[in-house]
């Protein structure tokens, strides 16, 4: 099964941290920092998993997920959403938009790794 993860995050230090973490765990990590063309990038890369920030320049993470779910081939793509806004309202909105899993910053590294593994296993199994 594929081990490619696309990380879309505009905060360079966070990007660096996650990339370090996942790379050491054996994942191929691609990164992107802009929301505006995120969907095109996803379509081009066809990752097995997308880690998506909410507050992105150009387009919000929520809108990106909505767009993804409109696209036939990307409907089942697992999306792990990271957000600095941890309110219930934001979580609900994300789930309605089609986010697979929702995680509030600041997260622990173990949590992220577990979530990535879990989502990948589900996608493979299903």
């Amino acid at each position: 099964m594929g081990r490619q993860v696309l990380l879309i995050e505009d905060e360079p230090n966070i990007t660096e941290a996650i990339r370090f973490l996942l790379t050491r765990d054996g994942w191929q990590v691609a990164t992107h920092a802009d929301g505006g063309n995120a969907v095109d990038v996803i379509r081009a890369i066809r990752p097995d998993l997308v880690i998506l920030d909410v507050m992105l320049p150009g387009k919000s993470g929520i809108d990106i997920v909505r767009d993804l779910r409109e696209i036939e081939q990307l409907r089942a793509l697992p999306v792990l959403m990271l957000t600095a806004r941890g309110q219930l309202r934001d979580r609900e909105m994300a789930e309605r938009a089609g986010v697979t899993r929702f995680m509030t910053k600041p997260f622990s590294n173990a949590e992220v790794l577990a979530a990535v593994r879990d989502l990948n296993a589900q996608a493979s199994g299903g």
Partner: peptide, 18 residues
């Protein structure tokens, strides 16, 4: 504020855990 505080904290936590 929450967003602005969480963002640097996320980096700090991630790297300190690393």
């Amino acid at each position: 504020i929450s967003h602005e505080l969480r963002t640097p904290m996320t980096s700090i936590r991630a790297f300190s855990e690393i």
